[in-house]
């Protein structure tokens, strides 16, 4: 007999290791008791949900109703979280502050068309710094 066969034979002897008589009958009782205990420990919402689901066929709730309710709840949550036209958060403002400077880093005189800043969208917006008050601003009554 090869060593491999001898090992297999030895291992087969382990089949004789058995739990005490009556163990499997007790095992079933223990399992049933445990199942009942788990039922008692279940959270209230889980029991309520199970009852609702089991009642559903009796009260003729169409199957799609659940999906519709869930979809509506998700949509409502999305609207609440992402409100259109809601004020931008302070974090976003702080991030944009560097590009929204009202003062030019360097002054230019009229006639020069040098863009001094960018808009928050990144498109160039030309500003001019006038050295003197424009003529049109002068009062027509002053001589």
């Amino acid at each position: 007999m090869t060593p491999e066969e001898q090992i297999s034979k030895l291992l087969r002897l382990k089949r004789y290791e058995q739990p005490r008589p009556g163990y499997f009958e007790d095992f079933l009782q223990e399992f049933q008791a445990r199942q009942r205990a788990e039922l008692i420990r279940r959270p209230l919402w889980e029991i309520a949900w199970d009852r609702l689901v089991s009642l559903a066929p009796a009260i003729q709730v169409p199957r799609l109703a659940y999906a519709t309710i869930v979809a509506l709840a998700v949509a409502a949550s999305a609207v609440i979280i992402v409100r259109p036209g809601a004020p931008v958060s302070s974090g976003t403002l702080a991030a944009n502050r560097s590009t929204l400077s009202l003062t030019s880093p360097h002054s230019v005189t009229i006639g020069e068309s040098v863009p001094v800043t960018l808009t928050s969208t990144g498109s160039p917006s030309v500003h001019y710094v006038l050295p003197t008050r424009p003529v049109s601003y002068a009062s027509s009554r002053s001589f």
Partner: peptide
């Protein structure tokens, strides 16, 4: 923590 060995093993030719 081993289970008892069934008495039948004593008659098993492999044992």
């Amino acid at each position: 923590s081993l289970d008892d060995v069934d008495n039948g093993i004593a008659n098993d030719p492999e044992f």
